[in-house]
Structure formats: C-alpha cells, structure tokens
Nucleic acid binder design. Structure first.
Lengths: 128, 128
DNA sequence: CTAAAGTTTGACATTGATGTCAATGTCAAG
DNA sequence: CTTGACATTGACATCAATGTCAAACTTTAG
C-alpha cells in the first residue's frame, strides 16, 4: 500500500510517516516510481510510534525500543553496561510518567462520576 | 521560600517555574522586594506539573486537572455537558498513553532481566 | 563597603513534532 | 490527452517547552 492509505489506517498525517522515516523509525521500500510502499505490519508499527510519541517518549528512545522488541526475542542481548544503565534510567522515567498519568486518569474519572454523567466514561471507551 | 529553593526542591529550572506561572499553572505571592515567595505545597505542585508535562499532558489540560483536584473535593462539580465530554475524550487519550508506556516499560524490563543485569532495575528505582 | 549569588523582566534561540506550501512527477478515469 | 487525486522532495512556519543572555536590583557573605 502507499503512504496515503497507511496514514489513514494508522490515523496520522502522511507528513508524519515521512518524518518518522526520516528519524529512522521506519524503513520503506520503494516502488519503481519512487513511491513508498508499505505492508500491513507497518500500519501497526506506525500506530505504535504515534502512540509513543503522544505519550511523551522521544523518537530517539522509540527507535531503540522498537528495535529491542524485534531483536531481543531471539538473539543474545548485546547489552554493554552503559546501554543497560541508560535503559534503566529511561525505565524510571517511564514509570514516573505512568504514575502521573494514572493519577490524572483517576482525577478525571472521579469528576466524571461525581458529575452524574458517568455514562461518558464507557461512552468514550466505546468510541474507540 | 524563594524561587531558587523551590526549583531545586522540585527538581526543575527556575526558568520553568516562571514559565508555569505565566501559563497560569501557578500563582506566586510577592515579597516587598518583588521576589516570588512560595510555600511547601508549591513544591509538590511544581513537581506534579513537571511530571505531567513530561508525560505529555499539555499545559492547558494540566491547568484544569489541578483545578479539578482542589475544587471538586468539596464543591458541586460545575460540569456543563460539553466540558464533561471533553474530559471523557482526554481520559481516553490518557488511557492510551498509559497503555503505550506500560508496554514500553515491559519491553525495557524484559531486556534488562535477560541481559543478566537485572540489578539495574531495582538500582534505578532506589536512585529515586 | 564590596563582591558574589540570587532575583526580576524581557528578548532571543533552540529543539522536537507538525502543519503548510510549492514545484514536480505518476497514475487512473473520463 | 487531460484532469484530478496522490506522491515526491524541500523549504519555511508554527507551537510548546526550555535554554540562555542581558541589564538592573536585592540580599548575603566576607
């Protein structure tokens, strides 16, 4: 498929797909015309990238995270001490983010339930 | 306390404290000299703001979230339908972020444990 | 008193993630 | 063949969050 369809399916702007590629988060085959061509898996990948970006993970880290997911399943983790330390630090940062977000989530839920319009909670979830 | 101490205790740059104030996330009393003066509670508030910013919550939303936490404890939630809908939408976004981050967290933990340097996980947590 | 450190406001720079626009190329349908 | 939709690259604009610097004032330490 071409970039337009990919973008539509992943729910992002085509512009972003090119940007992600430029950041090394994505590799695209090229058709004879020069058009980028994508597989179904790429839709998933782009969705995940977009989600991580929205969650405040910098693209640099997204790159290594995605790489880790695909490579570390099988191979011996080539993990020099310094890299592992960096990952540990990022882990702490991510856990902090989760804590902040969880608290905010609870706050919103709280207000929504109190406001007697609790229906909106499930409504919103269903809208996905 | 003055801005320097506040910033140090909250772990951010003084510049950011002024920025947050400018964005309406913070109100600061002024001493006779014109210096901003803060209370212990402000340390907590600034920490939370910084965390939410890092987690990708836009300052606009942070403002209403913090307001909600302080006001909605007691008062009748003044929540017109449209506002509630907006909050429900934000809630979904936040839940998405949590899901993304949780997955990334698991990935990192996975790699760290496999890499036989699992010690870094608790090490990192202790470093807080 | 004086020097150093902290604070004030304000302006300007930067970085990351996107939007937008322009000029050109490609393809499918009429 | 022409038109319209979609692609390409590249440049420029924007927005939020920060960094940085300057000029002036205050406070603290010596």
């Amino acid at each position: 498929m071409k970039i337009g369809e990919l973008a539509r399916r992943a729910g992002v702007a085509p512009r972003l797909v090119r940007y992600y590629e430029q950041q090394g988060l994505l590799v695209a085959d090229r058709a004879a015309n020069g058009y980028r061509t994508y597989s179904d898996d790429d839709v998933e990948r782009v969705s995940r990238v977009a989600g991580m970006v929205r969650a405040g993970i910098p693209t640099r880290l997204i790159k290594v995270l995605l790489d880790m997911e695909t490579t570390s399943r099988s191979e011996a983790p080539t993990c020099p001490r310094t890299v592992a330390e960096m990952l540990a630090a990022e882990l702490v940062g991510i856990e902090d983010k989760i804590a902040c977000l969880s608290r905010s989530r609870d706050t919103i839920r709280d207000v929504l339930t109190r406001t007697e319009q609790a229906a909106l909670i499930s409504e919103g979830a269903a809208a996905r």
